[in-house]
Every structure is written in structure tokens, then in C-alpha cells.
Nucleic acid binder design. Structure first.
Lengths: 122, 122
DNA sequence: CATGATACATACTTTAGGGTAAGTACTTGT
DNA sequence: ACAAGTACTTACCCTAAAGTATGTATCATG
């Protein structure tokens, strides 16, 4: 989680967009590169950290926890750690995270329409 | 439109994500900072370039056309230029772009639920 | 006694996206 | 003759997000 410069225009614009545009607000939450994928994997049930890692082989560990932490910080997922060793940590969707599933579904529906040639894209 | 390095891992991962995850495919299309906002403004009807500019005062001209070109290139919007001087250019949603509106709506619905305290986020 | 599995952390580098500032071409209005 | 409005373009800079590489703690097992 990188430090942010409050003075930069990009941050001011971010502010503007967040106030003016609900969509941008959502993008802030699920815009990270691997976030939608993580959310998708959690939509099919709770997963351990290592399960997620194996499910998404292309992501690095740094990116995985970074996004998990952000999603947790944003209240979209819930982390549960059993105080055992070796560690046993599970992640699951919160109600807010579950509420995002219709968004994910709408996106997937559009993408599949594109794939099926209903729309001509790119 | 910046040149991209084909060799970079980020591009490889992009490929992976695009194939594996329909949501990421959508993000690619509407993930630009001002794209959702542009789409939103076009959802209420055709707009001239200058109208969009005035409607979104915080965006710079460079960003505005850059994103308009990308959206046009992706087939989400249609550009119509009348060969007159001063120029008269109109942008409107394509059918693919219109098909994205449910996604936008689902996002907005979620954002408003968060605002109304239905979910606890951040 | 050292290797593997668990779930991370941390220092450093790269890259893509976004922003700034300025210029272009053509015509109408003052 | 000069500013203003139209729709861009182009060269350069800066930053946030992504990636690389390596390290940590604890215990069980061969």
C-alpha cells in the first residue's frame, strides 16, 4: 500500500470522480488487476490463502496479499485466521462483497455476448 | 496512446487474465479513468465533443480524446463528423456500448447501497 | 538437521497511465 | 488584424500500480 501525495492532480481528479461518479467509486474498489479474479474465486466459496494461490497461478504472492489486504480493508472480504501452526487462514466474501456479484455477473454476461458475436468489439 | 512493450510480464498477465476472466475483459474496456464517466454522459444521448468537454470539466482535452479514441477503437462508441468548418463531431453509444449500461447500472446500484449504509465499506 | 509447507513482509525496479503545456488548421465575428 | 470557437495533436514529465527477489517464523517429517 503505497503512500499517496495529497497534492497531485490525479488525486484531486480522483476526488472529483468519486463524488460525481458512483461507477468510479466501484472501480476504486475492484479496479486492482487481480481483484475481480479474487472476488470471482471467492464467489464459489471460502478459500484458504494457498488455495487462492494455486487457483490463480499467474499472480505473485506480493500482489495476492496486497489485494487481499485492500479488499479486506475495504470491507469486501473477511479474513479468518486460526491460531495454529502451520497457519490456517481463510478468506470469504462479506455481505458488501456478495453485493458486488451482480456487477460481476453483468460484466461476465456482456463479455460472453461479445464472445458469441452479439456485439462487435475491438 | 502509449506504446506497449510486448515482452513485459504485465502484458503476459493481461493476456492470462483476459482469457481466464471475462470481468477483466470488461475492465480493459471501461477501466480508463474517464471512460465510465464518458459512457455515462453518452447514455443520456448523443453529445458533441465540446459538450462532453463542458460536461466533464475536470478532464483534460488530451485525456478526453485519448479515451474517446480508445472507446471508438474498441467499438463501444461511434464518432460522426460532419465535414464542415468549424468542425461538428458527435459521439454516441454503439450497440455494444449500450449493452454495457446494465453493468454501469449495477455498479451505481451497489454504490448507492453503500452510500445508504446497506453495506459497510471502507 | 535440513527440507517443506504455511502465510505472509519488505526493499527495490519497471511500466503504463495520467497530467501539463503548448501548438495546429480553418472560419466567423469585431 | 486579431481574438474566439471548433476538434484535435504532440512532446515531455510524474506517479501509482504492478512485478522481482528475497527473507521471516513456526512446526512436522524424513
Amino acid at each position: 500500500m503505497t503512500a499517496i501525495k495529497e497534492s497531485s492532480t490525479i488525486q484531486e481528479n480522483k476526488q472529483y470522480a468519486l463524488e460525481k461518479c458512483p461507477v468510479t467509486f466501484v472501480m476504486e474498489k475492484i479496479g486492482g488487476y487481480w481483484k475481480p479474479i479474487i472476488l470471482y474465486h471467492l464467489s464459489t466459496g471460502d478459500k484458504r490463502y494457498s488455495e487462492l494461490k494455486r487457483a490463480i497461478p499467474a499472480v505473485t504472492e506480493k500482489m495476492l496479499i496486497q489485494h487481499l489486504k485492500q479488499l479486506e480493508g475495504d470491507g469486501l472480504i473477511i479474513r479468518e485466521a486460526k491460531p495454529v501452526v502451520p497457519p490456517f487462514v481463510t478468506y470469504k466474501l462479506s455481505s458488501a462483497g456478495t453485493g458486488l456479484l451482480p456487477v460481476i455477473d453483468a460484466m461476465a454476461a456482456w463479455a460472453f455476448k461479445v464472445k458469441d458475436g452479439v456485439y462487435t468489439v475491438k
